[in-house]
């Protein structure tokens, strides 16, 4: 490996990527970070130019809303392959890079190889924030934002087409908090009602944790949106303790909690698949246990 480029979009994931890359390639490789904290058309143009100029062999991009828009687009523009949402990156016995990507909700992990195809056709990989350890270190930075501010570069807008940004609205979101939480209370379809989702949120508040849910709770419209959804298509959590209520154990959810230290599951279905992926299995009515936990606290 001679050069690794990392997209710094203003999310801590870029440092995690740098750390992972350093652990794989050591000091033999050169690392360069392209810092551009702008929306996707500018970011895309900038990254494309930077890759063509710097000719890295590998480009790592955080799989955020922005990264997911930039990475696959770069793939087509540069005529190269993109490995999505890698859970790990390995160097195979033959010395090739093997990107480990989840499929079927994480039930299956597939190896993906992106054979180098030429100078400006690097392998591109995206990685969800939190997949790799936080890292502190430095590397060369191409600060595009600064260049734009100094007027050295004009933000490329050529593919923005007829759609312009008409507004930015901050949102109340729990995604970041959930991903970092040391304690997670999670509700599944078995909680049965919007009221019980609120109780899960109250539990999180009382015990100092974060509240998460599974896909059906979002789909049923019981309150939370996809930011609170734990799983491969939502947030991956790695708390010290995870307590799940009324969760069946679908692959895409279980894969999102695999890094929890302790998993406690409450479900009245003795055969719930989640029990096989839990440290502690409690065959109880979810609502009754939630109430008991809240009750004790409120006393």
């Amino acid at each position: 490996m001679n050069k690794v480029m990392i997209f710094d979009q203003g999310n801590p994931v870029c440092m995690q990527l740098l750390g992972k890359a350093r652990s794989l390639f050591g000091e033999e490789a050169e690392y360069v970070m392209v810092s551009v904290r702008r929306h996707h058309n500018v970011a895309l143009e900038t990254m494309e130019n930077a890759i063509r100029e710097e000719k890295p062999e590998l480009v790592l991009i955080g799989a955020t809303a922005l990264g997911e828009e930039v990475a696959p687009a770069l793939g087509v523009r540069l005529g190269t392959g993109v490995a999505a949402h890698c859970v790990d990156i390995n160097i195979s016995d033959e010395g090739n890079l093997a990107f480990m990507v989840p499929a079927f909700g994480g039930k299956v992990i597939g190896e993906i190889f992106v054979p180098a195809a030429g100078d400006d056709r690097p392998a591109i990989a995206t990685v969800k924030p939190g997949t790799f350890e936080d890292y502190e270190g430095e590397c060369r930075v191409i600060d595009v934002d600064e260049q734009i501010e100094k007027g050295l570069l004009s933000p490329g807008e050529k593919k923005q087409g007829a759609f312009r940004m008409a507004g930015i609205e901050p949102r109340k979101h729990t995604a970041g908090r959930l991903a970092k939480a040391q304690l997670v209370f999670c509700g599944g379809f078995g909680i049965g009602s919007p009221e019980n989702w609120q109780k899960i949120e109250r539990l999180a508040e009382k015990f100092g944790g974060a509240a998460g849910c599974t896909r059906p709770v979002v789909d049923m419209g019981w309150g939370p949106d996809e930011d609170s959804m734990i799983g491969t298509s939502g947030i991956s959590v790695k708390p010290k303790v995870y307590v799940g209520f009324g969760i069946s154990g679908a692959a895409h959810h279980v894969c999102g909690i695999r890094d929890a230290d302790v998993i406690i599951s409450i479900n009245n279905d003795r055969n719930a698949e989640v029990f096989a992926a839990s440290d502690y299995a409690g065959v109880f009515d979810a609502e009754a246990v939630i109430d008991a936990l809240l009750g004790e606290e409120e006393k």
């Binding site: 992990i109 695999r258 299995a281």
Partner: peptide, 22 residues
């Protein structure tokens, strides 16, 4: 025509003890 090539498939081990809470 695919720039990525698939390798092995593995099923991650997600199993835990699942001992009774009580």
């Amino acid at each position: 025509g695919s720039p990525t090539q698939p390798g092995r498939l593995i099923t991650p081990e997600l199993g835990r003890a699942g001992r009774p809470l009580l």
